[in-house]
Every structure is written in structure tokens, then in C-alpha cells.
Design a protein around this nucleic acid. Structure first.
Length: 505
RNA sequence: GGCGACGUAGCUCAGUUGGUAAGAGUGCUCGACUCAUAAUCGAGAGGUCGUGGGUUCAAGUCCCACCGUCGCUACCA
């Protein structure tokens, strides 16, 4: 189903106090692959990621390092940018909350909310944990300490601005009823949060400077979350002369982890509604990656840098594993053994080996020159079905389903070769040309369909079967149609696309 | 405590609004093939869909209870 339109997809912006790890990589690679799929469709696509750079934690670590908060943020933000580049993640924009345009957008949105009567001033006192940047109730404390950091809390009393979240319950229910939160189980969680009753939330601080200034009161900066979320609007020009909200916002898709469901499925739409704007079209909530049953968190010990894995599996190997083995939504087990198994079976044996055997037979039986496919090939129908299911999978932002649908076609092609045994046919005969033409055509289609995930390997396949140009420049659905592979191209025999891996001890 | 999610073949997971005798991949067993990265293909074994009730002509799919796992409530993908 081809449609040309706008498609806007975002990751959360990552807090620069953190080091990029495999959890960030999962979210970001998913968004990248989906964005690449939409580019193939010809949609105007905006893929946004970036870094969240305000807040007390940044201010403190800057002080500890003897640099300014901005310098601190510059260094760590750059680290995220480099990590994404190393994983073939190609965002259209990398936003930073310290950019002037973001301050402008934040101030504009919150002023709108205030003008609509949803922000008021009140004083707040409580036990404050610096590490959490949050207040605690007496009941929550453990021996007078913060339950998370197990360190003493400070008694703080300050004037805060509050957002009247409690007034937004009905509007949020209505939004959730539109199916905006995906998958269904996560929608229930969001609904559950609302049903327990929403309290107004504090959105400003007087105790710190490192943040976006509250425009109507110089003594305050906004609490980091209430500026961070607004990045999704900043990036498309909200508050600037190049406001492109009309173009992008109706097709907005946020990809987030379930830990920040509350912010993205409750606070964020509430803010937008209060500002008189439309909430996002969809929030896609995924689960955690589990390692030996333990959550990969920034306070946990199981830190895995993406580079640790690309060294052994390659960028495509890592991307494929994250996209194929993680079912979008539930928590997912992440294991070394699982990665090895998936790499060897799907990439080395099924896809890589298909390319090898086809190239060899074309050289032995067809003089190394490809043939056009048979229009009546049974694989034509298989390819059409595969495309439909693959497209549906990407459209729904369920990469594992999309990839499984693509691989079904590749497996069917291995079976097709087995059935016809072209290696036994007479060299140069019409029948061997026909069979190999069909197989080459599948490889061409597979190169296109796998390109969102296998960014460089798909191009290698494309080139190996003699095609010019970039596979990423192909346009769907036309490029998935049967009959696109022309006769007369030189097919190259190359090194194995994905050398088999032996598990390390 | 309150709220929520999850619990389907050894493993990882699919199962749209309840409806033809439960699916895929992987693993295992047997067989075939030898063009190919000891790769590929075929066949087979393997599940009382966590437990117990209920609604229904019909439930993995809805309702209740219970068991187990995890999360939110209370920073962070």
C-alpha cells in the first residue's frame, strides 16, 4: 500500500549524564530502521534523536570536573552522536536541549499553557534528593535516606509553578481511546495511571540555574522533564519562523521505553492539550532488554557498550539481532548465545549462503551473467506475499514481524533451488537461466527489503548481483515488484557476506 | 498497600473484533542432496495455551479467584 506523505519518528532524548549502552541502541536502531523503511516508501521522513542536557545532575558533574555545564554537555552529547554514527543510525536531526531554539520553544509552549490557566504558583516543601532531583514523602524514606540512592535527603522549601494535571483526566482518557498508545497492554498501563487519580505536578525550580528560564519569573527554571519533552516540537520549528508543525505533527510517532511511559503517555499529551494543541499521534512503548534476567539500567552493573558487540557481530549483526529477536512491547531476553544463533542461522546460513550458492551456480552454469526472472515463477507470488507482510510489519513498528516475513521469502528461495537443482542442469540451457534468474530476482528484492535493517550488507548484495546505484534509493512498492532484475548483468563471486561465527568460550 | 503488565512446544516468540481438529523460527530425531559459509532441502516427535471456576452454541482469545514473574506508585533507554 503506497502512500506518499510525511512521517515523523522520534527517540527519547538521552540524558547526557549517561553513557550510551545497548538499551539506548535498541530504541534508536528501531527508530532508524523504521525511518529508513519510510524513506523507501518515498515518504518525507523526519527522524529525530538527541540529548537532554539540563538539570542538577549535569550542573553537579560539571562542577566536579571543573568545567561549565555547557562544556560538560558538549562532550557527552558528542559521545551519543558518535555512537549513532558507528551504528549506521542516520537521524535527520540531532537536537540538544541547550540550543537557543529549544529555549524559545519551551518558553512559548509553557506560556501558552499558563495563558490557558493551567499553571499556577504555590509553595512546596519536602525531603529533596539531589540524585533523584525529586521530592519524597516522609513514608518513602528509608531511615531518613533516599530509597534509591540511600543517601540523606535535604529539607527544601521553595516556590514552584505547578501544572494542573488533575484537570486533564477526561481529555487524556479521550486521547487514549483513540488507540494512540501502542501496544494495547501499554495503553492499559497509561489508563491505570489516570484511574488512580492525577495530582498537579511541580514544573519549576528556584534551586538551580542550569535549565530553561521561566519567561514570566526570572527566579525559576523549568524542571528538566518539562523542557525535555518539548524537544519533539522544537525540532519541527515550533516557536520559530519555520514552523512546520502542520506538516509533521499529524504523523508523529514517539518510540519510548516503558520506564518513561508516564511522561510520554500522560504528562506530555496533557501538556499539549493544555496548550490547546494536538497530542502526538502515537506513542510506541517497548519493554526492557534483560540480561540474565536483570534489567539493563543505568544504575545497574550490566553495562554493555554497543561497540563491544559490533566488534564480533558487525554493525548489521547487532542491528539485525535487536530488530529481529526483540518483540516490540514485552521485555526481552538478550543473550550472547541468542545472538550467535540468530546470526548464524538467519544471516550466515539462510541469506549469506543463498548469495554464495547463487553466485557460484551462475558462474558455473551461466557464464557469470545474470538472467531476468520468469514472470510465471512460483516465487513471484511468494515475493508478493512477503512484501505485503513485511510492509505491514514495518508500518506497525514491529520489526521482528517484518523481518520474519522477509526471511520467509529467502527460505522459500533456498527450497526452490533444492527443488530444481540447477547445478545438475546443462550449462547455458534455458532452464538453468530461468531458475537462476528467479533466484537473482529474489536477492534483488531481498536487498531492498532488508536495507532498513542491514544497512551495508544489503548494498553488498545489490552490488554483487551486478546492480548499480544505492539500494537505499529504491522506491517501494515498485522495487519489490517481480521482474525488476534485468538480464545481462555480471554477477560477482565474493567473500561470504556473513562469515559463520563460533561461540567464544 | 494501591494500580498495571506478563505467564502458549526444550529455547525465543506469533496468535487481529472469541469460531475451520493450536502456529513460526530455533533445537532434537530420521532421511535427501552435495551448487553453497560442515551451509541447504524434506519428514517426524514435542503443547491439558500458569491453576481453578464462570459466561457462551463456541475461549489461548471475555469475566472472577488463585499461583508465579516483573514493573509503576517514587530519577533514568
Amino acid at each position: 500500500m503506497a502512500f506518499v506523505g510525511s512521517f515523523y519518528i522520534t527517540t527519547p532524548i538521552y540524558y547526557v549524564n549517561d553513557v550510551p549502552h545497548i538499551g539506548h541502541a535498541y530504541t534508536t536502531i528501531t527508530a532508524d530502521a523504521v525511518a529508513r523503511w519510510h524513506r523507501l516508501l518515498g515518504d518525507e521522513t523526519m527522524f529525530l534523536t538527541g540529548t537532554d542536557e539540563h538539570g542538577l545532575k549535569i550542573q553537579r558533574s560539571a562542577e566536579a570536573n571543573g568545567v561549565t555545564p555547557q562544556e560538560q554537555a558538549d562532550v557527552t552529547s558528542q559521545r551519543f552522536r558518535e555512537t549513532w554514527a558507528s551504528l549506521d543510525v542516520t537521524p535527520d536531526q540531532f537536537i540538544r536541549t541547550t540550543e537557543p531554539r529549544h529555549h524559545t520553544a519551551t518558553q512559548k509552549l509553557l506560556t501558552q499553557i499558563k495563558d490557558n490557566g493551567y499553571i499556577y504558583k504555590d509553595s512546596y516543601a519536602g525531603h529533596y534528593c539531589v540524585g533523584c532531583e525529586a521530592y519524597y514523602n516522609e513514608d518513602d524514606l528509608v531511615d531518613g535516606n533516599c530509597p534509591t540512592h540511600e543517601r540523606p535527603v535535604e529539607w527544601l522549601e521553595e516556590d514552584n509553578y505547578f501544572f494542573a494535571l488533575s484537570k486533564m483526566e477526561d481529555a487524556l482518557r479521550a486521547w487514549l481511546d483513540t488507540g494512540s498508545v501502542i501496544p494495547e497492554g501499554k495503553r492499559s498501563e497509561a489508563l491505570g495511571i489516570i484511574e488512580t487519580g492525577l495530582e498537579d505536578v511541580s514544573i519549576s525550580r528556584t534551586s538551580i540555574d542550569w535549565g530553561v528560564r521561566v519567561p514570566w519569573d526570572d527566579d525559576h527554571v523549568f524542571y528538566v522533564w518539562y523542557d525535555a519533552l518539548i524537544n519533539y516540537l522544537t525540532a519541527i520549528g515550533f516557536g520559530s519562523e519555520n514552523d512546520e508543525l502542520q506538516r509533521w505533527w499529524p504523523e508523529s510517532h514517539h518510540i519510548v521505553g516503558k520506564d518513561i511511559l508516564r511522561f510520554h503517555c500522560v504528562y506530555w499529551p496533557a501538556m499539549l492539550i493544555a496548550a490547546g494543541m494536538e497530542p502526538p499521534k502515537n506513542v510506541h512503548v517497548h519493554g526492557f532488554l534483560l540480561l540474565g534476567g536483570k534489567k539493563l539500567s543505568k544504575t545497574g552493573l550490566t553495562q554493555i557498550a554497543p561497540a563491544d558487540l559490533t566488534e564480533e557481530f558487525g554493525v548489521d549483526g547487532l542491528r539485525y539481532h535487536l530488530l529481529r529477536d526483540v518483540s516490540f512491547g514485552p521485555d526481552s531476553d538478550f543473550s550472547y548465545e541468542g545472538m550467535i544463533s540468530r546470526y548464524n542461522t538467519d544471516l550466515a546460513n539462510t541469506l549469506g549462503n543463498l548469495l554464495s550458492r547463487v553466485a557460484t551456480v551462475v558462474h558455473k552454469k551461466c557464464g557469470g551473467v545474470g538472467t531476468a526472472p520468469n514472470p510465471d515463477s512460483p516465487l513471484a507470488e511468494a515475493a508478493a506475499e512477503s512484501y505485503t507482510a513485511t510492509a505491514q510489519g514495518w508500518e506497525n513498528i514491529t520489526p521482528s514481524i517484518a523481518l520474519e516475513a522477509t526471511w520467509k521469502l529467502i527460505r522459500q528461495t533456498n527450497a526452490y533451488l533444492e527443488q530444481h537443482e540447477p547445478w545438475k542442469m546443462e550449462e547455458g540451457s534455458a532452464e538453468v537461466h530461468q531458475v537462476m534468474g528467479d533466484a537473482l530476482e529474489v536477492l534483488r528484492i531481498a536487498a531492498v527489503l532488508t536495507s532498513p535493517g542491514l544497512t551495508s550488507s544489503s548494498q553488498k548484495i545489490w552490488s554483487a548481483i551486478g546492480l548499480d546505484g544505492e539500494v537505499a534509493d529504491q522506491r517501494l512498492p515498485a522495487a519489490a515488484g517481480w521482474g525488476g532484475y534485468p538480464a545481462g548483468l555480471d554477477v560477482r563471486k565474493g567473500d561470504p557476506l556473513f562469515p559463520r561465527l563460533k561461540p567464544r568460550e
